[in-house]
Computed example of a mutant assay.
Amino acid sequence: MLSLRQDISVVAVDDGMVLLDERTGRYYQVNGSGAVVLGVLLEGGGEDEAADALTERYDVLRERALADAAEIIRRLRTTGLVTA
Protein backbone atom coordinates (compact mmCIF):
# COMPACT_ATOMS: atom_id res chain seq x y z
CA MET A 1 0.00 0.00 0.00
CA LEU A 2 1.33 3.43 -0.94
CA SER A 3 0.96 6.49 1.23
CA LEU A 4 2.23 10.03 1.15
CA ARG A 5 5.26 10.81 3.25
CA GLN A 6 4.28 12.49 6.50
CA ASP A 7 5.98 15.74 5.49
CA ILE A 8 3.92 16.16 2.31
CA SER A 9 0.99 18.58 2.38
CA VAL A 10 -1.82 18.30 -0.16
CA VAL A 11 -4.31 20.90 -1.33
CA ALA A 12 -7.06 20.26 -3.88
CA VAL A 13 -7.31 22.89 -6.62
CA ASP A 14 -9.77 23.30 -9.50
CA ASP A 15 -7.79 21.20 -11.96
CA GLY A 16 -6.00 18.71 -9.69
CA MET A 17 -3.89 18.86 -6.54
CA VAL A 18 -0.82 20.70 -5.34
CA LEU A 19 1.63 18.90 -3.09
CA LEU A 20 4.26 20.59 -0.94
CA ASP A 21 7.36 18.74 0.18
CA GLU A 22 7.87 20.46 3.52
CA ARG A 23 11.46 19.20 3.79
CA THR A 24 12.61 20.91 0.61
CA GLY A 25 9.96 23.57 0.07
CA ARG A 26 9.34 22.19 -3.42
CA TYR A 27 5.83 22.19 -4.90
CA TYR A 28 4.40 19.55 -7.23
CA GLN A 29 1.18 19.77 -9.19
CA VAL A 30 -0.90 16.87 -10.43
CA ASN A 31 -3.63 17.25 -13.02
CA GLY A 32 -7.17 15.92 -12.73
CA SER A 33 -6.34 12.32 -13.57
CA GLY A 34 -3.36 12.44 -11.22
CA ALA A 35 -5.65 13.73 -8.49
CA VAL A 36 -8.05 10.83 -9.08
CA VAL A 37 -5.22 8.31 -8.77
CA LEU A 38 -3.73 10.02 -5.73
CA GLY A 39 -7.15 10.20 -4.08
CA VAL A 40 -7.60 6.45 -4.48
CA LEU A 41 -4.13 5.82 -3.06
CA LEU A 42 -4.82 8.07 -0.07
CA GLU A 43 -7.99 6.07 0.62
CA GLY A 44 -5.97 2.84 0.72
CA GLY A 45 -6.62 1.65 -2.83
CA GLY A 46 -4.08 0.40 -5.31
CA GLU A 47 -3.30 0.60 -8.99
CA ASP A 48 -6.33 -1.47 -10.08
CA GLU A 49 -8.74 0.66 -8.05
CA ALA A 50 -7.12 3.81 -9.42
CA ALA A 51 -7.63 2.53 -12.98
CA ASP A 52 -11.27 1.76 -12.18
CA ALA A 53 -11.73 5.30 -10.89
CA LEU A 54 -10.17 6.72 -14.06
CA THR A 55 -12.51 4.71 -16.31
CA GLU A 56 -15.50 5.88 -14.26
CA ARG A 57 -14.48 9.53 -14.40
CA TYR A 58 -13.10 9.73 -17.95
CA ASP A 59 -14.05 8.06 -21.20
CA VAL A 60 -10.97 5.83 -21.46
CA LEU A 61 -10.39 2.14 -22.01
CA ARG A 62 -9.28 0.08 -19.02
CA GLU A 63 -5.90 -0.68 -20.63
CA ARG A 64 -5.22 3.04 -21.01
CA ALA A 65 -6.40 3.72 -17.45
CA LEU A 66 -4.07 1.02 -16.11
CA ALA A 67 -1.12 2.48 -18.02
CA ASP A 68 -1.93 6.00 -16.83
CA ALA A 69 -2.33 4.91 -13.21
CA ALA A 70 0.98 3.02 -13.35
CA GLU A 71 2.76 6.07 -14.79
CA ILE A 72 1.33 8.43 -12.18
CA ILE A 73 2.35 6.04 -9.39
CA ARG A 74 5.82 5.68 -10.93
CA ARG A 75 6.26 9.46 -10.93
CA LEU A 76 5.06 9.75 -7.33
CA ARG A 77 7.65 7.13 -6.35
CA THR A 78 10.41 8.71 -8.43
CA THR A 79 9.91 12.08 -6.79
CA GLY A 80 9.86 10.44 -3.35
CA LEU A 81 6.43 11.77 -2.47
CA VAL A 82 5.05 8.36 -1.52
CA THR A 83 6.27 5.47 0.55
CA ALA A 84 5.45 1.81 0.02
Rank of each mutant, 00 (worst) to 15 (best):
R23F: 00
L20D: 02
A51G: 05
T83N: 05
D68S: 12
V10T: 08
L19H: 05
A51S: 05
E43W: 07
L19C: 10
E49H: 09
D15H: 03
D21H: 03
L61Q: 14
G80V: 09
Y28Q: 01
A69E: 02
G39V: 10
S3L: 13
L61A: 14
A35Y: 05
L20K: 04
G80H: 13
G44L: 12
L41D: 09
L20A: 08
Q29E: 08
V10H: 07
R62N: 00
V37S: 01
G45A: 06
Y28W: 13
L76K: 08
G25W: 00
M1Y: 05
E22S: 12
A67E: 15
R64V: 02
T78S: 13
L4K: 08
D52R: 11
E49F: 00
L42G: 14
V13G: 00
S9C: 07
G16D: 03
Y58R: 12
L81W: 03
R57Y: 08
T78L: 15
V13T: 02
A53E: 10
T83E: 14
A12V: 13
D21W: 02
L2I: 09
L38Y: 05
D68F: 11
M1S: 08
M17V: 12
G80C: 02
N31I: 04
V40A: 12
V10I: 15
R57K: 15
A67I: 05
D14T: 06
G39E: 09
T24N: 03
T24F: 01
D14I: 00
D52A: 10
L20M: 10
E56N: 15
T79M: 15
R23G: 03
G44D: 09
N31R: 05
G44W: 06
G44M: 14
G39W: 14
V11L: 13
D52V: 05
